[in-house]
Design a protein around this nucleic acid. Structure first.
Lengths: 321, 321
DNA sequence: CTGAAATAGGTCGCTTTCTGTCCTGAAAAA
DNA sequence: TTTTTCAGGACAGAAAGCGACCTATTTCAG
């Protein structure tokens, strides 16, 4: 069977690298007779994978999209690409299910050979420079935290609090919570002997002790408090502003596409567009996309308005020289 | 039946979902005796996967990152997340190897069940709204083209040429080439009986005939021409500009991080920073990130400078009301 | 219409592998 | 020291795998 199992895996691999194979080709590659190959194909079908066959000349076997996903056999290069993509997905905060992203990330994190891991790290940095600016959080760290949560492994790390004070922490991980693009790490602090919430982007010097710990029950009463603290921390630095532009909402939606989220009509001619965000710079950038000729007004925090006035002035000066 | 093969796969699956398992637990899950389980573990090891064991109390089996990546057994949710991440990676143009991205994409595209595919499509749209603005290209289309290239499958599609004329094409795919964030599709046009290059973002109504075609040899002499055409088309709309700011390059690198790519020192006090891009709006946004108090000058295409002047003026007006 | 190429699958006998049930050993933690 | 856990040899019966036949069926090309 040692032979058979690896051969089945190899067959699955072959079927994944080309759409169409004749039985003879496959049999030769696997070094078995055609009869055995047909039996192997049957085995795959019994395992639930849709291997379809076309008879006659120019026929062959094909692995079709079935009800279940077959085990993915990736080459090193492909694995690197997927890992990078996954990290981008995680750090950009895919809306669907953050828990899912994490479990996928943990799965990868567990088995990714170190040689590949280094390539992934190198690439992730390069890719992040393509994404919108903002706090950069380490996807590798996120992956390791996710793995620690999944496996209930005790960990240690350094944390820079909001007031700038650095402290060393030894904790039992509980879960990761995403709020927008910011991740929060909920865990039991062993020294303080209490539940704590940390911002992932302020965690560093991650160290995984290999010590397993019993999962603790998060007190339900306190869970609400955690969320509150986390959100407060998130909204503290958050800025609010909105644009009222002379443009019917339909037209505005067409022009801005997915970025029109939150826009609403003021009247038939005007649209209100919220552009709140974490950074004045990013919010400023949004304004550039209002098409030429469209009149608009700006309302919002004075901090932001002041920034716009000042930056607008500097830009005009710089471009007129 | 093929009990053992499926059991080995199941075992690999279990080892991927939790870090630590005791032999007894695994044996129970797989409905075999401990002895058989140990044999299964041995089989996995023979297949090249690093299953490590710790003896004694609180011991167990762990799947470690080895030299090779084991077949990834993903749940539906995880698969969706990965596919989305992969599409993001492909459309954002990962620098490493576009061919790799494509082969991974094709691998996924082939076996992704339709139910999951719909979820992936829905999510991809949502995710792309988070990415920098610009032409949005369909990652699903890219995946299907990649699959067609890999399998030498004849396809049909509609194409909108640069002059706005739409035509129907029947082609034999050859390859996909990435230039920056734009993808080009190289193929043999069956009606014109010649090689053609298409911009992927102008292709629509993709239709895969199931007809297999013999791979054609791309004439080397003409290959240069393709690249030229592709690059010309890419650079036609591309804008150039640069900022010279009063800031030492070291400090600038610290402040801008990965976005400082391409920056170079003019002298000890000044740094030149290229901000060329596809859209004046995006380039404008970059300027907001120059820290307050830093003097700078702007050089570049008149189109861009005019945009900056105009937009700067509008912004000041809007914020002063 | 015919032949070639391709999948589909039944049967038979030999060989190999697998499995459970015994063991005993060794290592690690409480 | 005791308990828990992995490690692995030996054996016998059961099961599966494999190749070597064989025939049937479908499809396309000529």
């Amino acid at each position: 069977m040692a032979e058979t199992t690896s051969r089945i895996l190899a067959l699955l691999n072959l079927l994944q690298t080309h759409r169409q194979w004749t039985g003879a080709e496959l049999a030769e590659r696997l070094a078995v007779t055609g009869r055995t190959l047909r039996r192997d194909i049957d085995r795959l079908r019994e395992l639930g994978y849709r291997v379809e066959a076309t008879r006659g000349a120019a026929g062959g076997y094909r692995l079709e999209a079935g009800a279940e996903l077959p085990p993915l056999l990736l080459t090193d290069d492909e694995a690197v690409t997927m890992a990078v993509g996954l990290r981008v997905a995680a750090t950009q905060g895919i809306a669907d299910g953050e828990q899912t992203t994490l479990s996928a990330l943990a799965k990868f994190e567990q088995v990714l050979p170190t040689a590949l891991r280094q390539r992934v790290n190198a690439l992730s940095v390069a890719v992040q420079s393509l994404t919108p600016r903002g706090e950069r959080i380490s996807a590798e760290l996120l992956g390791q935290l996710a793995l620690a949560c999944r496996d209930h492994e005790r960990i240690r790390f350094s944390y820079v609090a909001a007031d700038g004070v650095t402290s060393e922490r030894a904790v039992e991980p509980h879960s990761l919570v995403a709020a927008g693009r910011t991740w929060f790490f909920v865990c039991w602090d062993l020294r303080r002997e209490d539940w704590r919430t940390f911002r992932v982007d302020r965690i560093s010097s991650f160290f995984g002790t290999r010590v397993h710990c019993e999962p603790r029950q998060l007190p339900v009463a306190d869970a609400a408090e955690f969320v509150a603290v986390a959100l407060a921390s998130l909204h503290r630095g958050r800025l609010n502003a909105e644009v009222v532009m002379r443009m019917p909402i339909e037209q505005m939606r067409t022009h801005f596409g997915p970025w029109a989220t939150g826009a609403e009509a003021v009247d038939a001619e005007h649209t209100r567009w919220p552009i709140g965000g974490d950074s004045v710079e990013g919010m400023f950038g949004s304004l550039a996309w209002i098409p030429p000729g469209v009149e608009y007004e700006l309302h919002g925090d004075e901090v932001f308005l002041e920034f716009v006035r000042e930056t607008g002035k500097r830009l005009r000066d710089a471009s007129e020289r």
